[in-house]
Every structure is written in C-alpha cells, then in structure tokens.
Write a protein that binds this DNA or RNA. Structure first.
Lengths: 205, 205
DNA sequence: GTCTATAAAGTGATAGAC
DNA sequence: GTCTATCACTTTATAGAC
C-alpha cells in the first residue's frame, strides 16, 4: 500500500503498475484502490470512470515523454548532428528513463498493452498524442537515410519501433544479472538497441 | 457465428480470434460461445475451464508452428546453408503463414498477449513449448555469427525476436494497401523483416 | 453431448452520511 | 474529500433435465 502523494497521484501510480502487470481489464478498481491505499469510491470521484483513469495514466507520461524526446532531438539537430545513432538515442533514452520497476519501464509496458488493444479509442488516443513527435523523428530518419524510398523507410521505421517498444517494455528475456547495477543494465540495453536499430535501418544501403 | 467443424474446433477457432482481439480477460465465455455458435456450458464440458481452453488454444498452434519451423530449419542446414537470411526465413515464414485475418496472423497476436501477461503460468507454458526450438535456432545463429560473443549474441537474438513477434502480430502501422494482395503483402513483410533482422544481427561485424 | 437455470463471486458505479 | 452500503450487472462454473 502506497501512502505518498495526493490521492490522485497515488491512484495514478497504482493504476500504472497494475495495468502494466495485469492489463486494463485484468486490474479491477478494488485491487487498484486497495494497492493505492484509498477508498474504492475515490476513482470515480477523482476521475469519473475507470476509462477516464486509463486516459489519465497515459496523458501523464506521454506529455513528459514527448517533451523529453523532442528536447533530445532538438539538441541533436541543433548541433548539426548527422549520426543516426544520436537520433536513435534521443528516441530511446527518454523512454528507458521512465520510472523503472526492474521489469522494464512500467509505462512502456502499459504502452505495449495499449498497442495490443488494436482497434479502439485507446489506440487512437495514443496515436494522436504520439503522432506528431513520431513524424519529427521520421523526418530526421529520412534526412539521414536519403537512399531509401519513402515506402522502404516507413517499413523500416515500423519494424524498428516495434523492436524498441517490445524491448523497452521488458517483455524480452534478457534479465539484469545480479552483478550488474540497474543503471548499468539500462545503459547496456540502450547501446544494444541503438546498434541493432541503426544497422537495421541502414541495411543494404 | 461459425457453423463448421466439431464443437471443440469451433470453440478453439472463436477463442483464438476473440483472445487476439480483446485479450484473455477481455473475451468472455458468453461472447466466445455465442461467436462459435455453441452453448455456454460447452466450454466447461469440453475443456474444463476457461484457463484450460486458453492452454488448448496455444497447444494447437504451437505444436504445428514448432514442427514447421524445425522442418524449415532442417532443410536449410541439410543443404549446408550458410546464409543468415535462410535461417531467418525458416523462423519467420511458418509464423506468417498461420491463418490470417488481415490484421496479421491471428495466433501471433495471441502470442503477444501472452508475452504481456509477464509472470504467470501462461508465460511458462509458452516458454516450455517454445524453448527447445528457439535453442536450435540460436545454435544456428551462433554458427553463422562466430565473431559475436555469447553475451552479444543473446542480446541481439532477444531484440530480434521482439521485433519479429511485434511485427508479425500485426500491431505495427504498416497496413496492407488495397492494391496489394494479402499474399503479396505477406511476402513483402517477410522480406523486409529478414533484411532488417539480418542487418541487426550482423551489426558492426 | 447439449441444453436451461442458477449459484457464487466479482465488476464498475453511485447515493448519501459524515 | 472520504467513507459505507448497495445497486445493477457480468463473470465463470455447475447441477440436473433431456
């Protein structure tokens, strides 16, 4: 039971963790409010409904993540950076630095859940709040990979985003060993992802 | 409502589709039996419980998928094949050829759901039925990439499997255009995945 | 093997006291 | 803003008729 922060913040934190672990349907309001140490009725009082709570969990992190990714990308391009690796770093690092519970960044796991929900409002919500930043990165990739056709580029970006999302969510098999600090493991993950993604994007060019 | 096949088969088919679309918790037995055109009680009569039904959905496809991947890999190695691309083809093609509903191979989407369930029995069940084939492929990758350390190799395989799983599940953004046949789109996807994965595995070597 | 009816428990949501 | 109590509904599962 978490007793730090306001009721709203405690609910959001508990919701993020439980949604990551058990999915949106799998996590009930009773588990969630109990884990947050608040009353069952508090969710509806503060958020209106479970669905709105889900949206708030997304909004809170996506706003911060988008801002950090944009700032990191701006820094790279301002310096006239021409290294694909630097753009990938700007994309990956902010996501990996979101609060971590040793099974990968919690929110990244929630994001993968949202991907899996496929058709619905949730997917559209994420895509609307993600889209414009993604387009900025796509433009940079296009600039740094001028030999690729638009079609080819989009295929590769799509595959790359999938790889990164999956890897960052911690659903993979590479577990942190006990003799490696969480900090070092995260840095290792980032470097491996950048190398793999850069090679995949450059393939055959 | 599907009226082909035995009651058991109809339930398994409807379950696969609904689990892919709405998740294991999200799909209720009522939706499922209604979609299969069978009585609600039929699930418990034929499978014992919802959880056992989930296991059966996996067993049915994993058995076939494993066998096809092994056969394809055997064909490649028998011919003394030394192309990384051929091994990747043996891994990817059987998965992409599972029954498809235009949103990607249905079962691959169920598999991604299972990945997201993280800790539980289901994850172990998948890993137990997947592990030995995965190890055969890993051995081939090791043989074809002798310059990589064991550590490095495992990182890259982990990232690659994530990329492929995500892409094959159809959760990505590359939708089939109307002027491309489903068959052609699948072949395109396979070729793009092979090129990307091969480059990522070979990175910097 | 298939059906209806129902049990037992869990769900999101809300009214109303404090 | 927080609480209890409860409503209305859905969930999985099963007993028992056919």
């Amino acid at each position: 039971m978490n007793r730090t922060g306001s009721t709203k913040e405690r609910i959001l934190g508990a919701a993020e963790a439980l949604f990551a672990q058990r999915g949106f349907d799998g996590a009930s309001l009773r588990q969630l409010t109990s884990s947050a140490g608040v009353n069952l009725a508090a969710v509806n009082y503060h958020f209106g409904s479970k669905e709105k709570l889900v949206e708030e969990v997304f909004r809170r992190r996506l706003d911060a993540l988008n801002a950090q990714r944009q700032a990191a990308l701006a820094k790279v391009t301002e310096l006239g950076g021409n290294r694909l690796e630097d753009v990938l770093d700007a994309f990956i690092r902010p996501a990996m630095e979101l609060s971590d519970d040793d099974g990968g960044p919690l929110f990244m796991r929630v994001l993968v859940r949202a991907f899996a929900e496929h058709d619905d409002t949730l997917r559209r919500f994420v895509s609307e709040n993600y889209g414009h930043v993604m387009r900025q990165f796509s433009a940079e990739f296009a600039r740094l990979l001028p030999d690729l056709s638009k079609e080819e580029l989009y295929w590769r970006i799509d595959i790359m985003v999938g790889a990164l999302t999956h890897a960052m969510s911690g659903f993979g098999m590479m577990k942190r060993k006990n003799d490696v600090s969480a900090r070092a493991h995260r840095e290792q993950t980032i470097q491996h992802l950048i190398r793999f993604a850069a090679a995949g994007l450059r393939a055959g060019s």
